[in-house]
């Protein structure tokens, strides 16, 4: 029993033993904690405007200052974290799920289907992200859903291609042939024998994609293509601050700092996860 528990904690201990890994975990916990406890930590309602209090610098009353509408930036940053993490986690999970299914089908299915799906993946991948975002927003209007759809569309081809390549390598392997000869159907082979062997590296890759997704959400909101006002978003805070960056730089700092910390946190964590679980890739990328 104690040996089993010890085995389970071994990867965590290895993660914490790496300085960058420990820093990554700390930053990620900080961001997640801030988002989860936003209601409890915020003194002010994040969308409450108070023009008389506009452009106040950081103080004990307003820890990160106020914006052009007198809204408390600390509250907006904490609640903006919810949006960023929700979009990142939900859209990455959706991308993973869709990517894994499509990749398995492409890799295990007939050649013509593989070719067709590759063409589809490459066609989607060839769209620049911003162009894709603009096209979707033109069609459906700016919203959180539009952000999620953009992220899913951008990420799915990459994940699917990785799964397809690994599936192609595994489908001729002896244990798959043995399962097939024992009467296992396609679905069972894919679910029980192939998927567990291909999904590990993808989870590491997905954790490293989370900051990219957060940057996409912030970028779209900065451009006015993401969440609708007055919903707090780090990108929207950056946009608010950009107008008055000369006189009131704290707004841009309040919007930019969490993006930087979150990006660093997930990147450090992802890289350390990769080094711990797949040492062959250490130092790459």
């Amino acid at each position: 029993m104690s040996a089993a528990v010890s085995d389970a904690w071994r990867p965590v201990r290895r993660l914490l033993a790496e300085p960058l890994g420990a820093l990554g975990i700390a930053l990620v916990l900080l961001v997640i904690g801030g988002a989860v406890l936003a209601d409890w930590l915020s003194v002010y309602e994040p969308s409450r405007i108070s023009p008389r209090d506009r452009f106040q610098g950081p103080s004990w009353t307003h820890l990160l200052g106020t914006d052009q509408l007198g809204r408390d930036l600390f509250s907006r940053v904490l609640h903006g974290g919810r949006i960023a993490l929700s979009v990142a986690l939900f859209s990455t999970a959706a991308s993973l799920a869709i990517g894994v299914v499509l990749g398995l089908i492409a890799g295990y299915g007939p050649r013509w289907l593989d070719n067709l799906m590759l063409l589809l993946f490459d066609s989607i991948k060839s769209f620049p992200t911003v162009m894709l975002a603009l096209a979707l927003v033109t069609l459906f209007g700016p919203s959180l859903t539009a952000v999620v759809v953009v992220v899913v569309l951008v990420n799915v081809p990459g994940y699917a291609r990785i799964i397809r390549t690994q599936t192609l390598a595994l489908k001729e392997s002896e244990f798959v042939t043995a399962a097939q000869s024992m009467g296992a159907g396609t679905a069972r082979v894919l679910r029980v024998h192939i998927m567990p062997n291909v999904i590990g590296p993808l989870l590491i890759l997905a954790s490293m994609d989370i900051p990219v997704v957060i940057a996409i959400e912030a970028g779209m909101s900065f451009l006015g293509l993401g969440v609708r006002p007055p919903t707090p978003s780090w990108g929207a805070i950056l946009n608010d601050g950009f107008t008055a960056i000369r006189d009131t730089p704290w707004i841009v700092i309040a919007g930019g700092l969490p993006i930087i910390l979150t990006t660093l946190g997930f990147t450090f964590l992802g890289e350390t996860l990769r080094d711990v679980f797949d040492p062959r890739l250490k130092g790459r990328g």
């Binding site: 969308s47 405007i49 509408l69 006015g224 007055p230 946009n239 950009f242």
Partner: peptide, 15 residues
């Protein structure tokens, strides 16, 4: 129009 002054005005109207 996607412009900072309009967005600020719009948010006060929204409130």
């Amino acid at each position: 129009l996607n412009q900072s002054e309009r967005l600020t005005a719009a948010q006060v109207i929204q409130a």
